[in-house]
Simulated assay, not measured.
Amino acid sequence: MTDPTPLKVGIVGTGGMGRHHCDRFREIPGVKVVAVYDVDQARAAEVATKYEVPLVARTVDELFDAVDVVSVVTPDRFHAEPAIAALKRGKHLLCEKPLSPTLSEAREMARVARDAEKRGIVHMVNFSYRGSGGFAKAIELVRGGALGPLRQVHSWYQQGWLATSRYALDAKADALWRLSTGAGSGGVLGDLGCHILDMTSAIGGDIARARCTLRTFDKRLADGRWTRELNGIALDANDLALIECDFVDGAFGMIQTSRWATGHGNHLRCEAHGVDGALCVDLDRHWSEVEVCTSAALAKNGWSPEWTTEKTPDRANNWWRFIDAIRGKGPVDVDLTRGAQVQAYLDACERSAVSGGWETIAGWM
């Protein structure tokens, strides 16, 4: 059955993630990708041919003229301009994460989004792990008081691709931009840290202050040499982040994220421990499960309590839920104001890495 609300989508940015957005939108009935734009017009034309997109826009304004929905999938430092312009033009917006390299820019994006929302515009940040049923159930359990007051939250997001010869770098490596601040990368803190900070604070509550240590390591090139520079590009973005945080409600958190976690592909895990129970979400093991240790299990055997697995219904992915929100079928999980809040956490981490001390979370509204 044809959906009563057909929607025309335009993709801004046609790199690897831009193609992924094309794939996901094409799966949704009544949704058609009708325009793409990229500063690299040849790449945009290639994507248009592959996905049978009728318009390769020469400017973002030309793309806006043709669409109802805009998906911004550029490198981080180029999110703000097309996102703000799309919102002001009355286009529903899906923006990749993190919102921006700077908190001030993220605040402005969120402010414009709230103004657009008053006119019925839907806006969402693509924190992809919000599609996990286990993650959603963990939030529900904590907010419902199943664990009692929280005392500690431990999270980690580990990738190991920088440690494997398969990803030895050369000048054409797709991941090269992720390793250079000059290319707009916020390093592992911005790329993976935004995900794990979103997960940790969605489960554990708002963060009041943070202390962060960052590390950057030499990179292995395709010829076996180790370096921090390739063809004039400084490979200077951080590779590892260790974050301590105090939550507003009194719990303590420890977060680690790395691209040098040898033996891990894409391992994301969060444990929350309260006075009446605990839970664990491990998305490397299962997307739609949460492990729970209840107060009853603690009362039965406090030294070695039983953990049970709660299975959750599969959730639609972010693209489906974004389109559903436009069609009035439900809210978005992460709007641009929440995206700015996560940016405030990243900002405190960056300031702490310089100062060496605790930094208070700045306002994000």
Rank of each mutant, 00 (worst) to 15 (best):
D249C: 10
G328K: 00
F217I: 10
C95V: 08
T257S: 04
T2Q: 15
Q152I: 07
P4L: 08
S201A: 07
S352W: 13
D223M: 03
G190S: 08
S304Y: 08
A86T: 02
A86C: 04
S295I: 14
C212D: 07
V33T: 07
E46N: 11
I121R: 03
K88M: 03
A85L: 06
C22P: 01
A171G: 07
G15F: 05
A80G: 02
G339N: 10
Q341V: 06
V36D: 09
A278G: 09
V33A: 15
F25N: 07
G13C: 06
I84G: 01
V56A: 03
G13H: 09
G186K: 05
A222P: 08
Q341P: 04
D61N: 07
I207R: 08
V31S: 04
V281M: 06
G134S: 02
L279P: 12
K219A: 07
G134P: 05
E46H: 11
S71G: 03
K91V: 13
N126T: 01
A42H: 08
E244F: 12
G205D: 11
A362G: 11
L93P: 03
V334Y: 15
A171L: 03
G148S: 04
H195S: 06
K172W: 14
R209G: 00
C270S: 13
L141A: 02
A173F: 14
A45T: 03
P4K: 06
I233C: 15
L93N: 05
A348G: 09
V73P: 00
L235G: 06
A353S: 11
E46T: 02
K172Y: 13
S258H: 03
W226T: 13
A57S: 04
E108H: 14
D333E: 09
R351D: 09
V33N: 08
N318T: 10
W319C: 08
H267S: 11
L235D: 09
I121G: 01
A83D: 05
D333Y: 07
D38L: 09
S295N: 07
A173T: 11
N301L: 00
L93R: 04
I11F: 10
V33H: 15
A272Q: 06
K118A: 14
N301I: 00
V67D: 00
Q256K: 11
L268K: 09
A183K: 10
C245H: 10
R24G: 01
A316P: 13
D282C: 01
A272S: 05
C349Y: 12
N301E: 02
A66T: 00
L94M: 14
S201E: 05
P82L: 00
T360I: 15
W177Y: 12
V122K: 13
C22G: 02
L298W: 11
R130G: 14
G10Q: 08
E140S: 13
